[in-house]
């Protein structure tokens, strides 16, 4: 197999005196869905933010598509093919749905291609087309999540980083969002998915990493983790058998 699309090695990051990540390593291969699961405060979002440069790595390397990202400013990362849909569906609430999508293509200069992509994502998320002239903030939580994902895809990334896409959504909407992730992956998109909803994440992912207080404690194929007693007890809310 060729070199992984994303390779994180011995990554340490934090905020001020607090070290949030104590040297973690992980890989995402092209075409894979990889998930990072863990409790609140384990360092999941920090991992994503350190990968895309919003939080600076203090030690270790992040190699994406053959390039070292640790010195690349956050706003340049998207040009290299890495798009993040941030935690809490950080859509632009007072821009319309259409303007949000156009913002996602900010780094692109091919107007015709952007237009075609907007049409493509309207077809994938019909509700967005219906609401294209409404401000993003008036959409429901699930619609906002769809918008956030579509907006991230507008930059035509090689790897999509999703931070807690299920956060605050009703269960049937969560199922819908994970169906979308699976569908995107079938079309060839590689995904790094950070989730507290471990069961849903492991069901959709190929491989998983378990993050505990800034360290990776388990990693394996997703279905193995899903059946591991310790994982079941700690993250899936079941008694060990």
């Amino acid at each position: 197999m060729s070199a992984p699309l994303l390779q994180v090695q011995d990554l340490e990051a934090g905020y001020g005196a607090i070290v949030a990540l104590h040297g973690i390593s992980l890989t995402v291969n092209a075409g894979e869905i990889v998930t990072i699961i863990g409790a609140n405060g384990a360092g999941k979002s920090t991992t994503l933010n350190a990968v895309c440069g919003v939080v600076r790595a203090r030690r270790g390397t992040v190699t994406f598509d053959g390039r070292d990202l640790t010195r690349v400013p956050a706003h340049e990362v998207v040009r290299l093919g890495l798009a993040q849909s941030p935690e809490g569906r950080k859509i632009f609430p007072r821009l319309t749905v259409l303007e949000n999508l156009e913002m996602g293509a900010f780094t692109r200069r091919d107007a015709a291609g952007v237009k075609a992509d907007i049409a493509k994502y309207y077809a994938m998320f019909p509700i967005l087309e219906k609401r294209k002239h409404q401000p993003g903030g008036l959409l429901s939580g699930g619609e906002q999540q769809m918008l956030a994902i579509a907006r991230a895809l507008m930059s035509r990334p090689k790897l999509l980083l999703l931070d807690e896409p299920s956060l605050g959504l009703a269960p049937q909407i969560v199922v819908q969002i994970f169906d979308i992730i699976r569908e995107l992956n079938k079309q060839g998109m590689s995904v790094l998915l950070v989730e507290q909803n471990a069961r849903m994440a492991l069901k959709v992912a190929h491989r998983g990493y378990v993050l505990e207080t800034g360290r990776i404690t388990f990693t394996d194929k997703a279905d193995v983790l899903l059946n591991d007693d310790r994982i079941r007890a700690a993250y899936l809310g079941e008694e060990g058998h």
Partner: peptide, 20 residues
Amino acid sequence: RAWVALREDELAATCMGLNP
């Protein structure tokens, strides 16, 4: 347009490739 996005959410704007 970029100024509006920046005012709304600096982190999200940065993730879209805007240089704040």
